[in-house]
Design a protein around this nucleic acid. Sequence first.
DNA 1: CTGAAAGCGCTAACAT
DNA 2: ATGTTAGCGCTTTCAG
Lengths: 348, 348
Amino acid sequence: MMTMKDVAEKAGVSISTVSLVLNNHDAGRVKPQIAAKVRQMAEELGYKPNPMARSLRTSRTGILGFVSEQIQGIPYTSKALQGAQDATSRYGYIILLVDTDGSARQVEQTSTLQRYGVDGFLYSKPSSQVTEVPEELVHSPLVLISTNTVDNRFPIVEPNEFAIGYDATKRLIDSGAKKIAYIGNAKPTITQATRLEGYRRAFKEAGRTFDDRLVVNVGNNDPALEMVSRLFDEQHPDAFFCYDDSRTWYVYECAARRGLTIGKDLSVIGVGNLDFIVDTFTPKLTTIAIPEYEMGYWAACKLISLIEKRSLGPHPFPDELSNLPAIDAASPAKVHCRLIENESVISK
Amino acid sequence: MMTMKDVAEKAGVSISTVSLVLNNHDAGRVKPQIAAKVRQMAEELGYKPNPMARSLRTSRTGILGFVSEQIQGIPYTSKALQGAQDATSRYGYIILLVDTDGSARQVEQTSTLQRYGVDGFLYSKPSSQVTEVPEELVHSPLVLISTNTVDNRFPIVEPNEFAIGYDATKRLIDSGAKKIAYIGNAKPTITQATRLEGYRRAFKEAGRTFDDRLVVNVGNNDPALEMVSRLFDEQHPDAFFCYDDSRTWYVYECAARRGLTIGKDLSVIGVGNLDFIVDTFTPKLTTIAIPEYEMGYWAACKLISLIEKRSLGPHPFPDELSNLPAIDAASPAKVHCRLIENESVISK
DNA sequence: CTGAAAGCGCTAACAT
DNA sequence: ATGTTAGCGCTTTCAG
């Protein structure tokens, strides 16, 4: 590994000059020719700064801590992590990972991150429950991913559940469906309530009346399949909006048993990834995936803008994400996630 | 953050003494009482070493680089990452993440990791293809996860596909199934071949003759559902072993259309996570998940043992994993992954 | 047995 | 405009 010393010797200047130049602090301080030479030498030698040494002086590391609390075994956060990773590497940061089970070890692990001098935290918890932000995190810049918190102290990137419900329903309406059922979650989560709101709004805007016989909320221990079966037989819906992969599955199963073909006899839009997991789906099912990747990406951008105390500009996203809003704007409905700014109050 | 200086002052000794003691180099060098006092003070002050500063001297960081190449959007590695993370934090290491698309940026990102002074790499690529190990990685301790490589220079932790095929088939045989079909992959991957071997071996050991009419290999673009349908109607199998979630789905669909109930009329064991995704499965489906978590955990243990040049002992696993083999032993069939030692040849 | 001192690679205030 | 210098927190050799 080349050091500044090597560059300095090769360029025939002192280490401090090199430092000045390579950190772009040379404006009006170092003679342009010298600066150019230094830069060239650095390039030639393939010099890369040693982040450890740098952080020892500056206490800025270019490291972001990604803390995720996983529900046992469910790799919920993985796509958000990937998004965060992409954004992060784009801006020259890197991610230190802590995956915790929320136990006492979390504190320990988080403080480990702190010792490594992370510049800020991303905190992700796959829960629709309202939770508290771990105390250890609130002393650094922090952006939450998809976590409902009791206080509104930190920016949050979260799914736009209303938009999901609205969008799915509207698409079914636009496709010509007459009787659109909603297979929801019996547990009264915020997600459930908000999606249903979106569903109702789409109905309302289309001039249709809401019919609660078309809404079946099933739990995880209910005889769910039977409940959906009954809906089929009593209401004969021609379209379904499903809360998640499980619910989509029930509809699928019921349809198959009745010789009905999805995409022909029935339209189904489910939240989840079932069509992805079962990648050669015949017939066609439409799913709306929670935009985890985008949330991770966005959250990381927000965190970096917080750390560097500057706006990242209107287009911090790679091409595929270009339909995402600018980092500081409200999210349009067509993207199913949004940023809640919450002024970040860092208690030191 | 407390520093050694603080501890030294508080204990009334010099910094070097503190260093000696806290690194356990005090045997016969520091008076036991003094050592005790130092330790106590460190404890009281909550002193934690600064890894950055330490690595500046020792060039050991306690950081492991996790490099994963993702197929676009498939968060395949996430569980392996979680396993690695668990093992890693157990031994006081921490994971720096690089998630790459295999492009030119990979080199850049990997060298970023190198600058952060990672002690070693975990490399994971979700592919049954034979690939080369990225050149940038071979200069550090390296353990591969689930990656078939052209050369055998590095230790690999990989799924034991034979055991999966054998185990699934044997379980179906033991459950009393008469006609066990295999829905495989038309693409002739190593995975496919090895699983089929396991299937055949189980047949052989049970004294049954292999009947290739019961094997249907479907591709991703085939009229897969039709092919499985035909198998149903021509052979009337009473059990299925399925290559992955897609194939399991086909069986499920065909069964539903015929009014057959899995778990009653049919036994199905599929490789994958379908029963997990559709978490309230009715009726019961059995899946064998690729032990990604375990592979990650194991690989990290192996890597650490490589870095520290010591055996981690026979029980490096948490309780839930205690049925996994010792880090240096061959894997028994009951765990569906194995370690291939491959002497690690680090070219400096 | 303990402390002083050098130095890892880098930054930045201070001299020149 | 450039160089000198003093550390950041830690390890380790070498004197005492």
